[in-house]
Write a protein that binds this DNA or RNA. Sequence first.
DNA 1: TACGTTTTCAAACGCAGGTTTGAAAACGGA
DNA 2: TCCGTTTTCAAACCTGCGTTTGAAAACGTA
Lengths: 205, 205
Amino acid sequence: MTRPSEITRDRILKAAERLFAERGYDATSIRAIVARARVNQAAINYHFDGKEGLYREVLRAAFRGLTEDQLAHAGDAAGLPREQALAAFVRRQLRPLAARDEASRHMRIFNWETVRPTPVFRKLMSEEAAPFMGLTVELVRRFLPDADQRSLMVAAIWLLGQCSIFVRNREQLAGPPVALAFDDSAVDWLARLLSGWTLRGLGAA
Amino acid sequence: MTRPSEITRDRILKAAERLFAERGYDATSIRAIVARARVNQAAINYHFDGKEGLYREVLRAAFRGLTEDQLAHAGDAAGLPREQALAAFVRRQLRPLAARDEASRHMRIFNWETVRPTPVFRKLMSEEAAPFMGLTVELVRRFLPDADQRSLMVAAIWLLGQCSIFVRNREQLAGPPVALAFDDSAVDWLARLLSGWTLRGLGAA
DNA sequence: TACGTTTTCAAACGCAGGTTTGAAAACGGA
DNA sequence: TCCGTTTTCAAACCTGCGTTTGAAAACGTA
């Protein structure tokens, strides 16, 4: 693989990630992507075999980026008291709230998919979400040692839901009638609030 | 207003609601709508002044349908003990889980919008979401009488998030790796579980 | 029934989308 | 340097989109 062609490929991927995250698959045109990447239009078909092939690559990267952040800390969590482990988990889930970074773009692409999953996504999900769900289930199990598997699963989703509603709706929440805007310190504050309610809810405080 | 033209209008609205819910605004074509409604293509421009105007009407209906269910019971809630009021609220929020009905279509349209709100939606939201948010804030205030306005708002959203993650992701949750399917009794069970955790979280049990 | 208005219709328009093409340019080993 | 391969490029192609048009049909009223 020669050097310059890799650069073109990468520019396309970067531009596509931004645009797919911002507008979704349908509303993002090939022409918009190549304009942003400053690359010839035919390059997408050459390197990715069309728009759908490009999207597949972007989705893979987003999925990896999102879960590996939590998975990377799964080891730490085992060594922490359950209260601290949960607080850290919540704080990490809320991270895309403040930062306009790669992680928040990945979350955004993910959000588009949860509305109407493409086949590409379903496959990725059933193959690679298990470790992440497993990690979350193990976390809540430390608070509900006697619960059955089904309840644990619900508890894990419950925990994720409390965080995701803020992340997913960040933009709406910034406007009326809610008017909640988040900088780093506001995210810390929110994380403490949510952790507190969750800990009490699970009977740990 | 004559009779048959109202029928045409209604057929268009019904078909559009289904398709917008299923595929979102961008991926739904005028041609698909008129094919489903068995109506001439120009009828959409005639009755709704274009695709966007039609979407506005669909969005309005969806919004009304979603909130009026809760608003209609706002009166009852005031007469109930706070624990029962909250449990009833949660149960109502979870309603679209079991039914494949109008309510679940409305939720779906709503979901599309939360990913990337259209101007139409933003306007509707800032104008009409206030009563619904107010109702939810009043509910949590009964558990957190000393909290400031910002915390109450967060608590209200927190409560909504716990429910919405199950409703929004119903289809994904049904498959691997989670495998949670919901019939009426499962929804009751889930509502009790969530209510319990929430009540404890807010310090009421 | 007669007539102005409302509503439907088939056809076409202009545009933006994804993809294809064929040649030019850049590359890299011999 | 030479030559086969890889990569880029501008232009065109075709399809499907939302909208417009102008006339025909249906309607409601007097």
